[in-house]
Design a protein around this nucleic acid. Structure first.
Length: 119
RNA sequence: AGAGCCAGGCAAGAGGGUUGCCUGUAAGGGAGGAAAGUCCGGACACCAAGUGCCAGAAUGCUGGGUAAUACCCAGGAGUCGUAAGGCUACGGAAAGUGCAACAGAAAAUACACGGCCGAAAGGCAAAGGUGAAAAGGUGGGGUAAGAGCCCACCAGCAGGAAAGUGAUUUCCUGGCUUGGCAAACUCCAUUUGGUGCAAGUCCAAAAAGGGGAGGUUGGCACGCUAUUCCCGAGGUAGGACGCAUGAGAUGGUUAGUAAUAGCUAUCCUAGAGUAAUGACCCUCAAAACAGAAUCCGGCUUAUUGCCUGGCUCUCUAU
RNA sequence: UCCGCGGUGGCGCAAAGGUAGCGCGGGUGGCUGUUAACCACUAGGUUGUAGGUUCGAGUCCUGCCCGCGGAG
């Protein structure tokens, strides 16, 4: 029963989102981190800045886990951004910095955390 | 039945549902055996990259393989194991220099000390029990006492012969001896220029406004060629290429003990640039280590569950 | 992607191949009415790890692990 609920939830989401449309350049990254608004939690730091187009970037240090772990976290964060795109205001550029404690988080928890920070 | 050795192989997901990403016009394709460490070797690119010397670095039994290697294969020697087999940085100590604490008479020129013999002069290195290591070892003869002084066997050295491409092995002869450490400096032989795809090549906004003879790598020398020389050149932001058809993969076959090579058929099999290969659910299975960034060949390290073939030893039964 | 440096008591550092030490800190005792300072004594080390060379390794060699730094 619980599984089916989740399945339905998954179904209602979903809209194609090419990565290249939200990809940020190095200078944009630096600008957002320098001038953007900042929100914390134990596992994530999120920076926001109004820009000329939508943008989403992830920063994850080499100190966090191994490359397999880092890739997984990045993929999950991208998925979260994609499925919750309509919540985010237009032309909002976001950079997420991942901290060490994010390794152990499940997908669902990561999603909740992200959403609570975005609001 | 038990214990063990070697060679090689597959790779944890599969099926289904929903929804995504990268690449490609589309059809389609989309992580690994280690993609890792960056320890070696190349390809490729630039430095003018051509030669020689020095410095530095690397390798170190022999033969073969390869684009090349510090890798692989085969062999020798040493060593470990009952055996199948495993392991080895395995050139030179009479080229030279250096080192050896403590103990011990002495740590390498045996003139010393102690000892033996002898009336003495003198002769001797056997008996000194410490050490990791003590001047060939064991036994016999010999002598004043002794000693390769002589003999036998063993070990080592030199020369010769035979077998082998060679390392080396076997045999014969000789005089009897010249300790260890070169992962100490070093010597010998062989190899070696440097930097690395963020290498580098091409196109090229905006802003700015120019150099006269110069340029050499860790150092030196030589030579010649090439290059910049002109009015559109420079090459930042940005873009493109480099970038995936290759020392390619799979099958067959021939040569070779093998590594490998030749021939042949078929196939094209990830290509990004904050960087794709994902998220969620159901059933079975539960299974690790782990994620491409120029590309190959190795090595090393991490690691799950297995599979195949060959061989050795022990016990029991026949 | 590539290239360096380092790892020794709790902390900071030494140590020609020959008994692993120094300072700070800790503990005990002394001095003092008490504390600090001072004095004396004392504990604490598989020298990051696995091997090798050597009679003998913190030191020499090789593999690995961890940490720090640099270039573009």
């Amino acid at each position: 029963m619980e599984g089916q609920l989740l399945q339905e939830e998954g179904q209602k989401e979903g809209k194609g989102l090419p990565l290249s449309s939200v990809r940020l350049k190095k200078k944009e990254f630096e600008n957002i981190i320098k001038n953007g608004r900042k929100k914390f939690s134990d596992s994530l730091i999120v920076y926001f800045l109004k820009g000329e187009r939508d943008g989403f970037g992830i920063s994850i240090s080499k100190k966090i886990g191994k490359s397999v772990v880092r890739n997984k976290i990045k993929r999950r964060l991208r998925e979260i951004y994609r499925t919750n795109k309509e919540i985010i205001p237009k032309n909002m550029q976001i950079v997420v910095v991942v901290k060490n404690s994010a390794i152990s988080l499940e997908y669902k928890k990561l999603e909740d955390l992200f959403l609570s920070l975005v609001k």
